[in-house]
Nucleic acid binder design. Structure first.
Lengths: 156, 156
DNA sequence: TATTGTTATACTCTATAACTATA
DNA sequence: TATAGTTATAGAGTATAACAATA
């Protein structure tokens, strides 16, 4: 018997097998990676990353926030927020305003350009999400989101 | 009117709001992070990380593989595989054997200790997964895995 | 020439510790 | 004393480029 690969019988597999695809950890990680790729491509024309869009969304949809409040809403460190804001401010998408009532704080607001970017980028991101769940039925996609939210909120 | 937080009306929110939790990207990322934490804790007693368990599983469940084949199955770079194997081999969980039929290659095999670790660590990881999906019904948890596999496999 | 394993290096993302100015 | 923003630094985790041995 030859030791060579027998191409007539079985092509040498290169991808993940059931020992991985059967595990929830693998599925979550790779689903996240795929959607992140799709989203990155969709957002590229607007010059923002998915993480930057998340920062903008957190600043857009609630009362004006300090840097630290914004970081808290996103679950990231305040030092990480500094870097995000430096970059976003440099591109004119957000502005830091000293808080008159507590001069240690900056209130961070979206500029006009920032608001427009949020509108366009959100639409592009939603579109990527729609393509991502295209293999599922509408109700199955909704069920997926419900299930994910449930485990996130109810897990210790 | 005071500028202080009015605790009687509304506690200052610190977590994510619907602008984030309504997005699939956020849900996938944070579900993955939570499960990864649970799994890390569950695996700690066995001295392996989730990624190392994935490497071991890939070596355990199919024909013996070269380092590069194993990397291909996991979707990681071959240079990354070198580092994993250095560490796993240092702890006696895997062994590199020169491939007699192609002396550029190493065939990587699990040791006895490696096989035992796979058994125990897999059980612990499965248990973490079960706790993670505890908020869902049995069929809803199964549906979650089906949906994730579908989007992973069918998305461009 | 091409491929396997290896090394050195670099890049991304994030956090920790220490500094400053304000409170 | 404690907190908000900042800076410098460090640690994961991963990839790219170049090298030696072998095909």
């Amino acid at each position: 018997m030859s030791h060579e690969t027998r191409h007539d019988q079985r092509v040498e597999e290169d991808g993940p097998g059931p020992e991985l695809t059967g595990r929830l950890g693998y599925l979550l990680k790779h689903a996240q990676l795929r959607l992140a790729e799709l989203t990155a491509d969709a957002l590229a024309p607007y010059g923002v990353t998915g993480r930057e869009l998340a920062v903008l969304l957190v600043l857009a949809d609630r009362e004006p926030a300090s840097q630290q409040q914004a970081a808290g809403r996103l679950g990231i460190d305040r030092t990480t927020m500094v870097a995000f804001l430096d970059s976003l401010e440099g591109r004119g998408l957000v502005a830091r305003r000293p808080d008159a009532s507590d001069r240690r704080r900056n209130v961070v607001v979206l500029t006009e350009a920032g608001q427009e970017t949020v509108r366009l980028a959100t639409r592009a991101s939603d579109d990527a999400e729609r393509r991502f769940v295209a293999p599922l039925t509408r109700s199955s996609a909704a069920e997926l989101k419900r299930a994910l939210l449930a485990v996130i909120e109810k897990t210790p």
